[in-house]
């Protein structure tokens, strides 16, 4: 995987705004668990068929700022990550509150054991 830029939570929104100004299309977000406390969120952007990625290493217990106000397309995938990883995104345009795939009474997320979103839900 080439073209990976690490970003921090504070830089994330400005980086995404810059990408949008550049004319990048948001392809998707990928999330992968690193260890008990952190996850990797990778933002994939496409411009003229070449990809670039922003890697955000986020703590599971901290809410991640949502980019769905910049890229509306991020709405579904951020909700999906909330469901599958139990992360929490702040400022989502439409927040399904972990009921996109899961049922409201579900307390466990498939990919992560514990997170703040789950704690909030309970």
């Amino acid at each position: 995987m080439q073209n990976v830029t690490p970003v921090t939570i504070a830089e994330l929104k400005t980086a995404c705004q810059a990408a949008k100004a550049e004319g990048c299309r948001l392809v998707t977000l990928s999330c992968a668990e690193l260890d008990a406390e952190t996850v990797d969120i990778i933002y994939h952007f496409d411009k003229d068929l070449s990809l670039k990625h922003y890697r955000l290493t986020a703590k599971k217990c901290e809410p991640v700022p949502s980019i769905s106000d910049i890229y509306f397309a991020a709405l579904l995938v951020e909700n999906e990550i909330q469901d599958l990883f139990g992360l929490s995104f702040s400022g989502l345009v439409v927040d399904y509150k972990q009921t996109l795939y899961l049922e409201a009474e579900v307390r466990k997320t498939p990919f992560c054991k514990y997170s703040v979103a789950i704690a909030n839900k309970a």
């Binding site: 392809v27 998707t28 990928s30 994939h44 397309a73 995938v77």
Partner: peptide
């Protein structure tokens, strides 16, 4: 991790 982004999702 296998993460699949399908076109309909987009």
């Amino acid at each position: 991790r296998v993460r699949i982004r399908t076109p309909t999702f987009a």
